[in-house]
Design a binder for these strands. Structure first.
Lengths: 189, 189
DNA sequence: TGTAGCATGTAAGCCGTTACATGATTGA
DNA sequence: TCAATCATGTAACGGCTTACATGCTACA
């Protein structure tokens, strides 16, 4: 959240959540709305952000937040002083592949296919985000992240397709005279 | 944990943690020891695992767990009926790149380099695990996961190297007469 | 004889979630 | 006039972690 505020403009809790949904979500996690407000209160108590209430149109009130100098200093300190932690992945597709002996080769292939579909639309999302960032040097790094993301998922698609092919050719099927109906080792398929 | 037990042999809580550290950890997460025991109790109450106490050498006692038929059924049901969730990544390297405007291009490059080093040893770990699995058809799917992992991280290295190159060539440096000392826009570098 | 590894657990607490509650504004 | 969106929060709770507590065995 400090990072999102470090790009400059003061943001409401609601807007922070939106930015998180459109950027952070792809490589970190997007906090729940309730968490956003709770965390903003905490950051303000710590002096890392300040807020002011702005009268919206009509009777509407908005609280907008800005990162303080101390907040930015703290963020820089974190970037400079902490070790790079290796990415943590919760990869349900890998888990399912790992348990292929339970689902069977056929179901595992289907699962991989549906993952490829999801990957394709994820790449499209990233493409749109990258496009929205334009050439603005202010967003140079976010743009790099978006480009990285697209490449990352393209490599994932290639790897998954390869895996699916290897499942086809693998030794897990019962040999059948014609090529079409080799059964799986599992009875429920 | 049910998945780890689904490979057959009965395991102690301690062994489950070890298996998790050497396999699950790469694509899911490895629960804390305390969590392992708590969860095993819970799974036993639910009838998804059973345990028996085995006298070890001397006065030592071990509790070994086996997945029950119901546990395996439940696991198969989960695999078959739930939607594949898209992988969730907590990628601190991407976050740091995203915040490149705070750390500066130079520090960001250094950070990417150290990530490449970590990736290299991660690939080595996976290579060793893959080798340990051998050709045993029992571990066919875990072997596929290990191979996938190696390929995955190799693609990551290529992408990160590419990013680092683009940071070198990028417009973020102040032009310098000789090529060696282009300063960053940040004063603390 | 002491340290690393095997082995099992309890207690406290953090970080995040979902569910619930409220209300204004914009535009179809 | 009604739904979508903007906007802010509280309460309950789940899942996982760290810190703590205990004790045996193998081996250098």
């Amino acid at each position: 959240m400090l990072g999102l505020l470090s790009f400059g403009p003061e943001l409401s809790g609601y807007e922070i959540k939106q930015r998180a949904d459109s950027t952070l979500r792809f490589f970190w996690f997007s906090p729940a709305m309730s968490q956003v407000y709770a965390e903003l209160d905490r950051l303000e108590r710590l002096g890392l952000v300040t807020s002011r209430r702005i009268p919206g149109p009509g009777r509407r009130r908005t609280r907008r937040f800005t990162i303080t100098e101390e907040g930015e200093k703290e963020l820089r300190r974190w970037l400079a002083e902490t070790e790079v932690e290796f990415p943590v992945i919760k990869h349900s597709v890998a888990l399912r592949l790992f348990l292929g002996h339970l689902a069977g080769a056929q179901a595992t292939r289907t699962m991989l296919d549906s993952y490829v579909t999801q990957l394709t639309s994820r790449i499209e999302e990233l493409r749109a985000i990258r496009e929205g960032l334009g050439d603005d040097p202010h967003f140079r790094y976010p743009a790099l992240v978006a480009e990285w993301g697209q490449r990352y998922y393209e490599a994932e698609i290639a790897a998954v397709r390869d895996l699916a092919d290897r499942l086809d050719g693998g030794g897990d099927r019962v040999a059948a005279p014609d090529g079409s109906a080799g059964g799986d080792q599992l009875s429920d398929e």
